[in-house]
């Protein structure tokens, strides 16, 4: 059974002029446990929305998503929150670290909502991403590469089975991008977590064995806006 499985997923938004814009229309997608796949596509093709739907941050209009056998559609928001905290790690393009918290606390918060906070594991993860000497640093005291490393440690904090990475190298220079990308892949592999990464930069995806164009998956890319009822 696939770790991530989705069928007939649809998501639309109302645009400011009142038209309904379908952003996601994916008939089928799946990801196996420990599999790593990169989806690429230009900006505005629904990459972030796709990940938000999988993570349960957004509710789908139609279709079905299951992560580790747990439904992420047709369930309450609280249920999705619990499932996200328990099974999914999320890495953002802009790191989204909490500025008032140290590196260690940011990682601990990654565990807090899914179960018990394990201080030892938080430190261990930060050491794994090369920040053992920056445990009590605040994000503003870290370089952008280091901040993204904290975000990687946080994403893995709660032993997720699936890590979603949204343009994780978008704010990094090319050398750091390669390092961070390699780190994300290795860390996921060591943690036995599957990785679904989306990026607009096809160049950095070279290291991935499996890459796919979101446009090929997403039929909404070819659809036109329909007027609002």
């Amino acid at each position: 059974m696939a770790l991530l499985e989705l069928t007939d997923l649809r998501k639309s938004f109302a645009s400011p002029d009142g038209t309904i814009l379908t952003v996601i229309d994916i008939p089928r997608f799946q990801l196996d446990a420990r599999q790593q796949i990169a989806l690429f596509g230009p900006s505005g093709t629904g990459k972030t929305t796709f990940l938000h739907l999988i993570a349960g941050i957004l509710g789908a209009d139609a279709g079905r998503i299951t992560v580790a056998g747990k439904p992420m559609t047709g369930v309450s928001e609280a249920h999705r929150d619990r499932a996200r905290a328990a099974h999914i790690g999320y890495i953002f393009q802009t790191f989204n670290l909490l500025q008032g918290f140290t590196a260690r606390e940011n990682v601990q918060l990654g565990m807090a909502f899914g179960g018990q906070t394990d201080h030892h594991r938080a430190d261990e993860l930060l050491r794994r991403v090369g920040l053992g000497h920056r445990l009590d640093y605040f994000p503003r005291q870290l370089s952008t590469g280091q901040q993204q490393r904290v975000a990687v440690a946080r994403a893995l904090a709660n032993h997720p089975q699936l890590v979603l990475a949204d343009e994780p190298t978008g704010n990094l220079d090319s050398a750091t991008s390669r390092e961070v990308l390699q780190l994300i892949r290795e860390a996921c592999r060591e943690s036995n977590a599957a990785l679904l990464l989306v990026s607009h930069d096809a160049a950095i995806l070279g290291s991935f064995g499996e890459t796919e164009s979101l446009a090929d998956l997403n039929q909404a890319s070819r659809a036109t806006a329909s007027p609002a009822p």
């Binding site: 996200r84 008032g100 909502f113």
Partner: peptide, 16 residues
């Protein structure tokens, strides 16, 4: 707003 959104993305429920 961003801080709250991050907390929610990490799994914090609305009640939290």
């Amino acid at each position: 707003r961003r801080e709250l959104a991050i907390l929610r993305a990490l799994g914090a429920r609305r009640q939290t």
